[in-house]
């Protein structure tokens, strides 16, 4: 087993709401090895995004220990990149300048940053749009730029929070395939949050299934499907067996939660 790069130990997060305290994340523990692609799946409100934000250093304080590369996460760090559900591109910057923003902030010269940006623009296939402004791009193109922008600082860890959740089904499947391709070429550990089981199994080496109220991890499932993969794998018997496992687990958990709430 490769060495651990992300370690989440006994992570709990409690939110204060007008209705009282809500346990968003309940004693979650897992670790991610260098180079691994891990998906966290679960229903909305299960705390999966909160876990991701904690690894990003955006969610403090928390109880438990969350470290990346052995150092506790207390604030955002350039070695941890993030892609959000919305692209959040800077509307006043061109595609190239959006991607160059990170390197510039880390003290790279204008020409170095530009070279990094141009390399990434080439990689995401948006050469024709290097000088375009975000509002002129489609949703899928904007999200590609957001991915390139997050990669520009060469993060050791790339966090993705339902990055394809706001896209239509066709664009989403194209984006999944290009992420799979991209992944063969970059050396980053990825944690990817989604509520779509197909997306999780397609992309991941490991799937963590979370349940809601309070958010905890139900199952840590290895995805032993060959790479390189593409959307075509979704008809493979091994894939379907894995999917059935996941669905059974989620269904029984859903029933348990339902019985519990009707009994209580």
């Amino acid at each position: 087993m490769a060495r651990t790069i992300i370690s989440v130990a006994d992570l709990s997060i409690v939110f204060d709401t007008p209705q009282g305290q809500v346990i968003a994340v309940d004693r979650v523990t897992f670790s991610v090895a260098h180079g691994e692609f891990v998906c966290i799946v679960g229903p909305s409100g299960c705390g999966k995004s909160t876990v991701l934000n904690t690894i990003a250093g955006l969610e403090t304080p928390y109880s438990g220990a969350v470290t990346v590369d052995g150092r506790p996460m207390q604030r955002p760090r350039p070695d941890v990149g993030m892609v959000f559900q919305q692209p959040h591109l800077f509307p006043w910057k061109s595609v190239r300048k959006n991607i160059a923003h990170g390197p510039r902030m880390l003290g790279k010269s204008r020409s170095e940053a530009r070279a990094i940006a141009d390399g990434l623009i080439e990689m995401i296939g948006l050469n024709r749009f290097a000088d375009a402004y975000p509002h002129t791009l489609s949703g899928g193109m904007q999200q590609r730029v957001a991915i390139a922008r997050a990669l520009a600082n060469q993060p050791r860890v790339l966090l993705m929070d339902e990055p394809f959740g706001a896209l239509d089904a066709q664009t989403r499947s194209v984006m999944q395939d290009s992420l799979l391709e991209l992944r063969e070429r970059i050396d980053a550990t990825v944690v990817f949050v989604t509520h779509d089981i197909d997306e999780a199994i397609l992309l991941a080496d490991r799937v963590l299934i979370m349940s809601a109220g309070p958010g905890r991890i139900l199952r840590d499932l290895g995805v032993d499907l060959p790479r390189p993969r593409s959307n075509a794998i979704m008809l493979d018997p091994a894939y379907l067996a894995l999917k059935k496992d996941c669905l059974d687990l989620i269904r029984s958990e859903g029933r348990r939660a339902f019985d519990q709430s009707s009994a209580g």
Partner: peptide
């Protein structure tokens, strides 16, 4: 100002004073 832009900028290493 869109909080999402600020979070994105923070993740890219933008110092608070900038």
């Amino acid at each position: 100002v869109d909080r999402g832009l600020i979070r994105a900028a923070l993740m890219l290493g933008t110092p608070r004073r900038q």
